[in-house]
């Protein structure tokens, strides 16, 4: 069974923003994405975390219609990605490293947005550029990484999209630019009730802003769901060395480590574990993500 979002939704909105079923993408003989099924509810901020090359960009680029899946289907707000200009207008995208037209000025980029979109918040965009203290006449090719990311975010937001997809938006930024970027993003999300999917190879980049999480490794989705629900349904158990690995009290062993005759395991279960030999601890998000990333290295050991 492939990971699906747990049923609990943190807000009242029940409609699905992005619904992917068995999405796969192959380049020659290499699979960039395999059988990815996810359901992203509207109005949430979803963090997509995984190592470089795990398939995050591939998934996001399929969602915005820049890539075509080799198999599977995806609907965004009920329609195929990039099906027509109306659908393109509903989805904002910030590509990795924030590509811009190097020889065009900041102002040209705002004009470009106005000419290429039927819905365009020109005043808002101009206001944001003013707040960022960007020179309207400066060529985009000479902007710093942080300024480029901010300009690209401004373009994506000025479309007034319903869904915003951000591919590694803060990867190349220094800590200050990172903070500014995230602050602005969160202010916009709060104001316009956007659905956001943002990826990073670092959990720390996205855990503060996301309420949902998707963990990817080796072109597959390892786990996906509401963060609070995920944390509530996983236990960190420490007890005597145990082989073969079976979780006390049932549940799926996600990852296990042996050390000095004791075994520490991350177990997915909704029931409390009552076994005098085992002590139960709470997981933090990082331990949870690491457990799922480690799972790929020893899949047979965790088979229940």
């Amino acid at each position: 069974m492939l990971p699906k979002f747990a049923g609990v939704r943190s807000s009242g909105s029940a409609s699905v923003a992005i619904d992917a079923i068995d999405l796969s993408k192959r380049y020659g003989r290499r699979w960039a994405l395999q059988q990815c099924s996810i359901e992203i509810p509207e109005g949430h901020v979803v963090g997509l975390v995984g190592a470089n090359g795990a398939g995050k960009s591939t998934l996001l680029r399929i969602i915005v219609g820049l890539l075509r899946p080799s198999a599977g289907t995806v609907t965004v707000l009920g329609h195929p990605p990039a099906a027509d200009p109306a659908q393109l207008a509903r989805v904002g995208f910030l590509a990795q490293d924030a590509p811009l037209f190097g020889s065009l000025s900041v102002e040209d980029h705002l004009r470009l947005g106005r000419h290429l979109n039927m819905r365009w918040d020109g005043e808002g965009a101009a206001e944001r550029i003013r707040m960022l203290e960007l020179d309207l006449d400066q060529r985009a090719g000479t902007l710093s990484g942080g300024e480029r990311a901010q300009l690209a975010l401004t373009l994506a937001l000025a479309k007034r999209p319903e869904i915003l997809i951000l591919d590694e938006p803060v990867a190349g930024l220094d800590p200050l630019a990172r903070r500014d970027f995230v602050e602005r993003l969160m202010a916009e999300v709060a104001e316009h009730h956007l659905t956001v999917v943002l990826s990073s190879h670092l959990l720390s980049d996205i855990e503060k802003v996301s309420d949902h999480l998707i963990v990817m490794a080796s072109s597959r989705v390892r786990v996906a769901g509401d963060i609070a629900t995920l944390l509530a349904s996983h236990r960190l158990l420490t007890g005597p060395h145990r082989d073969p690995l079976v979780a006390p009290g049932g549940g799926e062993v996600i990852d296990a480590r042996h050390h000095d005759g004791t075994t520490t395991m991350v177990v997915r279960t909704d029931d409390p574990v009552v076994d005098p030999d085992w002590t139960t601890g709470e997981l933090d998000l990082e331990q949870l993500v690491l457990a799922y990333l480690a799972k790929r290295r020893a899949p047979e050991a965790t088979a229940s």
Partner: peptide, 12 residues
């Protein structure tokens, strides 16, 4: 990679 920008505006 400017096509990432051009092809995600509301123009087919």
């Amino acid at each position: 990679r400017t096509c990432d920008v051009a092809w995600t505006q509301a123009v087919s």
